[in-house]
Write a protein that binds this DNA or RNA. Structure first.
Length: 485
RNA sequence: GGCCCUAUCGUCUAGUGGUUAGGACAUUGCCCUUUCACGGCAGUAACAGGGGUUCAAAUCCCCUUAGGGUCACCA
């Protein structure tokens, strides 16, 4: 049974890279009919952020990545929060202490600092000098009894090759000499990541450790721990990193890195998940558009890329438009209503029928739901100004006169179809020996205030006869008299 | 700096010894459209460099270069 975990630390928002790590864990678990676990790595009390866990969970839920086991979903391996497992780490550190695979260290910060300075002055890699390893049992007992603060360090063996297998990268080899005697237990009694993650992964029966590449160089420490505990080593898969457009590590400095940022900007979860899934993985075919279940089906860790990937928002935007167009019309209706509530039109009431027509007309023209409102305000109110560029280009000396004639033509009718709007226009143009375009463009401007959008007769039908007549009158007055704005 | 990882169009990628090096986003042009999009068609655009191995190298090996990660009582 495959068991994988996403193990974030609750230091704030969910990073976009974290979303991808969670996604790959999720995809792999679902593909293998395994279990996807959410474990909270909150062993750093200084960095704990209030509300971060709740935020993490709700963001994961929003993305559709439901976990099978977690802090509120016990699968028999609780607790899933490391701060609640301190006794477990305590017990295991004693095992290590017992067979000298780890040792107490009572060194003060000052000594450590000067040691480090000395080493780097000599051009050496800063490393603990195993000073406290030489302490006798009685010295240790004394220190403990005198309540001298201590940490517990990993007793890294000298010059030992450490080789492990990684699904993404193959065999990776390190020499133990480059490893420091890592602190496993901090002086506050909390474990460090290295201890906690190994103990928990073993106890929670994690089969595959899927995490970011930033963990690759500390993996040998973890291997050492598995060996010291005499535990089976899980299979590792270190994911390539996500980069800014200048190829530096994806960071807040250069745009949005929090999933919530993208959510707030109106990105669809389907698009974000689709996009992020493709950043570092392909099925090997040309498929770019994925629903979540399709991605589960196609996913494999073997096809994860080795090289890091630049987060290109252009492609995300395209995918967002693609996913938007695949949405059921009633979903779009609800989303439009939400956008309307957030807009300056939130006091106005529109019928579902009216909104549905707008969606139908605008869908090929938008990439985001908020664009139903922002790029087509004329459906929700009379234009309060007319685009100057378009006036310059399309409003001729005879425009007002032609529109007036057109108005007369449709004035007589009491209801009207797209065809009738169009025929009336053709007839008006003909009778005044003008081109259709001479009327169409001013009409569009009068109705919408802008130069682009759905077909002008479609707009007219959606707005309705009375509104069309009204807007023509107002436009003639405002534009002809230079009262724009 | 030590160690580790990586290297195909601007970007995401396909490619596992023999391909006109393919696709997608972006970009350019054309068509459709009396507008703007969508859509369709076409175009520009890549194997980091140098050595090997081989009849044959984007593909295997080595070196160089470049980028990234990591070297905490952070994860």
């Amino acid at each position: 049974m495959v068991r994988v975990r996403f193990a974030p630390s609750p230091t704030g928002y969910l990073h976009i890279g974290g979303l991808r790590t969670a996604l790959y864990n999720y995809l792999f678990a679902k593909k293998m009919n395994g279990i996807f676990i959410l474990r909270i790595e909150d062993t750093d009390r200084a960095r704990f952020v209030e509300g971060a866990i709740e935020n993490l969970i709700s963001t994961l839920r929003w993305a559709g990545l439901d976990y099978d086991e977690g802090i509120d979903k016990d699968g028999g391996f609780a607790p899933y929060m490391q701060s609640q497992r301190l006794d477990i780490y305590q017990k295991h550190i004693q095992d290590l202490l017992g067979n000298k695979k780890a040792y107490y260290c009572f060194c003060e910060q000052a000594r450590l600092t000067s040691l480090r300075e000395e080493q780097s002055k000599l051009g050496h890699q800063p490393k603990y000098d195993k000073h406290c390893l030489k302490l006798t049992d009685t010295e240790i007992q004394n220190n403990l009894e005198n309540k001298i603060p201590f940490v517990v360090r990993l007793n890294v063996p000298v010059s030992e090759p450490i080789i492990f297998f990684d699904i993404v990268r193959g065999d990776v080899e390190f020499n133990s000499d480059v490893l420091d005697d890592q602190i496993l237990m901090k002086s506050d009694g909390y474990p460090t990541y290295h201890l906690a993650n190994v103990v928990d992964d073993h106890l929670m029966e994690i089969t595959h450790v899927i995490r970011g590449e930033e963990w690759l160089s500390s993996t040998p420490k973890h291997i050492l721990l598995y060996k010291f505990f005499n535990w089976e080593i899980p299979i590792f898969a270190h994911l390539p990193l996500l980069l800014n457009s200048d190829r530096s590590k994806l960071s807040k400095r250069q745009g949005d890195v929090a999933v919530e940022d993208y959510r707030a900007k109106g990105y669809l979860k389907e698009a974000l998940v689709n996009f992020v899934g493709l950043l570092g993985w392909t099925a090997g075919d040309d498929k770019e558009y994925y629903e979540l279940d399709e991605m589960i089906n196609a996913f494999s860790l073997e096809r994860v890329n080795k090289s890091s990937a630049v987060f290109d928002v252009q492609k995300l935007n395209w995918l967002n438009a693609e996913h938007l167009r695949k949405k059921p019309i009633l979903d779009l209706l609800e989303m439009l209503k939400v956008e309307l509530q957030k807009s300056r039109f939130n006091t106005k009431v529109f019928s579902d029928d009216y909104l549905l027509k707008i969606i139908d007309a605008m869908l090929p023209r938008v990439s985001f739901t908020h664009e139903f409102v922002s790029t087509a305000e004329y459906f929700f109110d009379i234009p309060n100004s007319y685009d100057e560029e378009t006036i310059k280009k399309r409003w001729k000396s005879n425009s007002a006169e032609l529109l007036l004639k057109y108005l007369e033509k449709i004035e007589a009718l009491n209801s009207i179809s797209k065809e009738e709007f169009e025929q009336a226009l053709h007839k008006t143009a003909e009778e005044n020996s003008a081109k259709n375009a001479d009327l169409i463009h001013p009409l569009r401007l009068a109705l919408s205030g802008v130069g682009g959008g759905p077909g002008v007769f479609d707009i007219a039908v959606i707005l309705g006869l009375d509104e069309v007549k009204n807007r023509i009158k107002i436009a003639i007055q405002k534009i002809s008299n230079g009262e724009n704005k």
